[in-house]
Design a protein around this nucleic acid. Structure first.
Length: 340
DNA sequence: CTTCTCACA
DNA sequence: TGTGAGGA
């Protein structure tokens, strides 16, 4: 089949097909006359190229995607999270513009403040990278849970924490739940045992792969706290365990806002994580570690962003949630919030 | 009808 | 990331 027929069959132009060839996406056979001849396999490939272009994937990304047929899903997943991130950015730009227009008297300063805030939010979303290298931890994560630290075990009461989160949320058959930072899926598993269908978000492709193999029924999606790959009000409840402490305190509040966006009316949120009660208790606990000379604990805590339970419940209450909390240890708490 | 190249946004 | 013109 010559190029024009191929083009019309695929609803594109010969010029475009040649362009893809130039970019190294496809190599059709050439006849004596130097004409390009396309076979069925070429058409299939062109079809996927066109489809990937249609969802906004760059030609260079498409090239790497097509290297391994089995990886197509993975790249589509990445593409989805990238598009959600763009969508959120545009939404933020629009609402900032709206706010600028709402200013009664146009003062340079207020506009600048708004634009700076917007820039800040964009920055935070973009800079969220895999600082903890979860990709390489993925395969051994479950094993590492069982191995305690020498003098400081962050996973003490791990099972209790997950159990308590699910106990708060009480998933019901037919509901859709979201687990953010799903990891290998231990918490989500307890949720879908009670009949809810689960969506799991993680920024690590490797984690998603391990999770997908362990729990094929979970809808695993690439994404992160600051840009959830979901539409507004799409889930009935949200759970998250041992994940929020990877975000700075400022980012934590943005993350709560993002959860609020995807959560349905009357939705529930349960967060089980390493955190302190409040500033006072944090100081007391850190002093205690200091006295005991427990440097292992101090380093571990300094290495991440253990937040304050009071900060989280404060945000929830300000935004119309009813809050319940449970303390499992000095540094392990569950925060439960219902949107009312 | 197809090819290629150059220029253009 | 494509598109249009123009010659062979």
């Amino acid at each position: 089949m010559k190029i024009k027929e191929a083009a019309s069959r695929l609803n594109t132009t010969p010029r475009t097909i040649r362009f893809y060839e130039e970019k190294g996406l496809i190599q059709p056979e050439k006849g004596e006359n130097d004409y390009r001849y396309y076979n069925e396999a070429d058409l299939w490939k062109l079809q996927t190229i066109l489809a990937l272009r249609e969802v906004g994937m760059s030609t260079s990304k498409i090239k790497t995607t097509l290297q391994d047929e089995n990886e197509v899903r993975k790249y589509l997943n990445m593409q989805r999270s990238a598009l959600y991130e763009e969508w959120l950015e545009i939404k933020d730009m629009i609402s900032t513009l709206d706010q600028m227009l709402e200013q009664p008297s146009f003062s340079q300063k207020d506009i600048f403040t708004l634009s700076n805030h917007l820039k800040d939010v964009k920055q935070k979303r973009k800079s969220w990278e895999d600082q903890w290298n979860f990709d390489s931890q993925a395969k051994d994560y479950d094993k590492s849970l069982k191995r305690s630290g020498f003098r400081f075990n962050v996973h003490e009461f791990y099972e209790e924490a997950l159990g308590s989160a699910v106990g708060f949320v009480k998933p019901v058959e037919g509901e859709t739940g979201l687990d953010i930072g799903i990891g290998t899926g231990n918490l989500a598993e307890k949720c879908f045992e009670s009949g809810a269908s689960m969506i799991g978000v993680d920024q690590s492709e490797e984690m998603l792969k391990v999770c997908g193999e362990k729990h094929p029924t979970i809808d695993t999606r690439h994404g992160h706290f600051l840009a959830l790959p979901l539409m507004d009000k799409q889930v009935d409840f949200i759970v998250s365990s041992y994940a929020l402490h990877h975000l700075t305190d400022e980012e934590k509040l943005l993350a709560l806002q993002e959860m609020d966006r995807v959560l349905n009316d009357n939705g529930r949120i349960a967060i089980a994580d390493l955190m302190f009660e409040d500033e006072e208790q944090k100081e007391a606990v850190m002093d205690q570690f200091e006295e005991e000379g427990n440097t292992e604990a101090i380093f571990a805590i300094r290495d991440e962003y253990y937040g304050l339970r009071s900060q989280l419940s404060g945000w929830f209450e300000q935004h119309g949630y009813r809050v319940e909390v449970k303390r499992l240890s000095d540094i392990l708490h569950v925060v439960y919030a219902v949107k009312v």
